[in-house]
Structure formats: C-alpha cells, structure tokens
Nucleic acid binder design. Structure first.
Lengths: 199, 199
DNA sequence: GTCTATCTACCTAACGATCGTTAGGGTCGA
DNA sequence: TCGACCCTAACGATCGTTAGGTAGATAGAC
C-alpha cells in the first residue's frame, strides 16, 4: 500500500489531467511563486493549452488554493508516514529536515508555502487559508513529536515547534539563494549544534 | 551627525528624486517582491509618471540592483552604528533582531533580500549580486560579533552566523504570514531559549 | 446493432488589462 | 543655450479570462 489519496473537496472531474496540472503548478510555484505562475507556461508543461485549464479550475485563485491544499495534505501524509516508519519520536524528529531538503534537491526549489508566505499581500484569501493550514500541520506535528520525545517541556513544545519550522524555512531560503544544498545541510547541523534541534 | 551617505556607484543625477524613487521602490519590493514591483505604481507613490523613472534608471534590472545595493549599504551602516552604540559585543548581538523587526513594524513588510532570495530564479544577475552582498554583510558582522563576544568558538562563528541569519529570516517570514509582530518576538525568544541566540 | 443525445476534454481566437520600455516634446534653472 | 527633469502617447509582449467550437467516449432509446 502506498500513499492514500486524500478526498477531493472541490467539484470537477477526477481525471488524471487535474492531478497532472496540480503537480506541474506546484513545481512552478515552488520556483516562481504564485505571482510567477501563469496559465500558458503551466499548460505547456502539462501538454495542453491555457484555456483548457479552466475545464478543471474556475480561476487562478481556485487553482492556487487547490495546489496549496494538495501540498499540505501531501506533507501531512508524509509526516504521518515518517512517524510510522521511525523507531521512536526522536528519530522521526531527526529526519524532519529531510522533507524540506527534497524541494532543494528537486531543481533548487523551496517549500511552496514559504514562497507564498512572502507573497501574503498578493494572495487571494482562499489561497492564504491553505498556506496557513500548511503551517498548522507542521507545527502540530512538531509539537506532538517534541513532547513525545521529551525534548522540551510540553508547555513549550508549541513555541519550540514554531521556532524549528521558521528556522528550517529560513535555511531553505538561504540555501536556495546560494543554489547549494550543502548550505542547507550545514545550517541544519548548526541548528543541532546550537541546540535548536536535538543533536 | 546622522547617517553618512554611501558613495553612489552608478552614474546619474544626484537629485533627491532618485533617492525618493529608491525609498518607495524598497517599500514596495519588501511587500510584493521584485516581480510585484512595477513602474506605474512606483511612479504614483513618488508623485511622477512611469516614464520619468527612466531619467534616473536604465531599466528595471538597474533599478532593482540600485534598490538592493542601497538596502545592504543602509544595513551595513546600521550594523556599524549598533556596534558603536553598544557597551559590548554581546549587547549589540542581543539587539540584532531589532533591525529585522523594523520591517515588520513598517506595514508588515519583510527584509527586501529575503523576498528577493525567494525570487532567485527570476532575478537579473545584477540584482542577485546585491542580494548576495546583503547576506555577506550580515554574516560577516554576526561572525565578527559572535567571536568577539566569545559566544562560540571562533572557528565556528561563520557557521553560527549563517544559522542566526537564516533563522531570523525565517522568523520574519512566518510572522508576516500571520500579520502579527508578536509571533516574531516569540520566535526570537524561542531561539534564545533553545540556545541559537545567547540568552 | 445502430442511431442519437450528452458529456468530457480539449481546441482556436480573442477580449481587456497590465507590463517594461521607447519616442518625442515641454519647462525651467544655470 | 543647454542639460536636468518630467510629461504624453504609444509600442509590443504578456497576463487572466471568456466565447464558441470540435473530436471522442458513453449511454439510452428504438
């Protein structure tokens, strides 16, 4: 059994086209942001024409929200799987940075929602809500795992979770600007040496 | 004596208009990025017409580079001043997060170069160079201060400097998406509690 | 079995808005 | 008179979006 498909919440056909559009849009938005995502380039990446996207999504805002929703749902699944596959909480926490490393591995991209967080002012409300959901998923997971691993006092696990999330996002950003994944690894190491992440 | 004006490196008139354009462009780019910065909105903010900007800058790339250059020079000046005004290295390090807090105070903006770092793929080469200079300025200052304050082993001060810089950038990003400056303060506190920043 | 109606998934073509940019002209102080 | 400074007007490109049409699969009626 591989990753289960999350229930769709938006109307529309369940064809593979929709998923292919979402996947391509995700990759583009991870490199160019919501503002840098345009229908013509996206359509070309999928192998269709720009107007055809409207058969699957009502508008760019609708597409953006669907992309961000699929993104945090995929992350939620990956976090669950990480927890299930790890021998204990501490080792799953240790592997948390790997999830964000993947974006950098894939063409020096960053987390979709980090980019979108920067674009907050220009984001439709529906998209902003999904970006927030992504943060909530990450912080809730980190908070739970930090408590379980007894890394910090349970009363402070929420704050520490936020700090780890923010620091990882920043590391990704800096590493991207250097186009060097080694910078990311070094930053994660530094976080461990400094005590932000358990060694 | 207030802040000295850094020597300009680009040709053009030395009028106040140029500075006013740069200041307005900085504010816009801190909220909407390089891609979200456009000549018509910028001109309106300054009180002139879009075409008039070309009397001061050759192109958008030239403008963007000038904006980023002015930004890191201003930061370099502020860091120098911070060091001069502080009783010791440790207290100037303690006040470092205040510099990045200012952007959030000013209309929930973020560091210009954090936004631009996300936009790396769509940035002209001249702009990218100035963004890198901003990082270098910050990391060099932090590294120097960390060594002087004996917070970390001098051999590791560069790495720790990078980690602090990245973490602060991430905190700013997360705080902005919440449109809540208290989130930033809480994150900085967490960094101190965790040991990333000296308590 | 075949005709017909419907639906999915895509297309071409174009709309109005907005983008960076340019040409060319006016105004005013040195 | 000349250059600094700003203007109007427009260029071609690109943006999200819409109208309207076509090929193929499907399903129900006869």
């Amino acid at each position: 059994m591989t990753k289960h498909t999350s229930a769709r919440e938006t109307p529309g056909p369940a064809s593979g086209s929709r998923v292919r559009i979402l996947a391509a849009a995700t990759r583009i938005a991870q490199a160019h942001g919501y503002g840098g995502l345009n229908f013509r380039d996206l359509a070309e990446a999928v192998g269709i024409k720009a107007a055809s996207i409207y058969h699957h999504f009502d508008s760019k805002a609708d597409l953006g929200a669907a992309v961000a929703r699929r993104y945090w749902q995929g992350t939620a699944d990956a976090l669950e799987e990480l927890l299930a596959r790890s021998p204990d909480s501490l080792s799953s926490l240790h592997r948390y940075p790997e999830l964000f490393r993947k974006a950098l591995e894939s063409g020096n991209r960053i987390c979709l929602c980090s980019f979108m967080a920067a674009e907050t002012d220009d984001l439709p409300e529906v998209v902003k809500a999904e970006v927030k959901a992504f943060q909530d998923v990450n912080i809730a997971w980190l908070s739970k795992v930090l408590s379980a691993a007894a890394v910090v006092d349970p009363a402070q696990s929420g704050q520490r979770a936020r700090a780890i999330f923010a620091a990882i996002a920043g590391a990704q950003l800096v590493a991207r600007s250097h186009a060097d994944i080694a910078v990311y690894d070094a930053l994660v190491d530094s976080y461990r040496n400094a005590g932000l992440l358990p060694a």
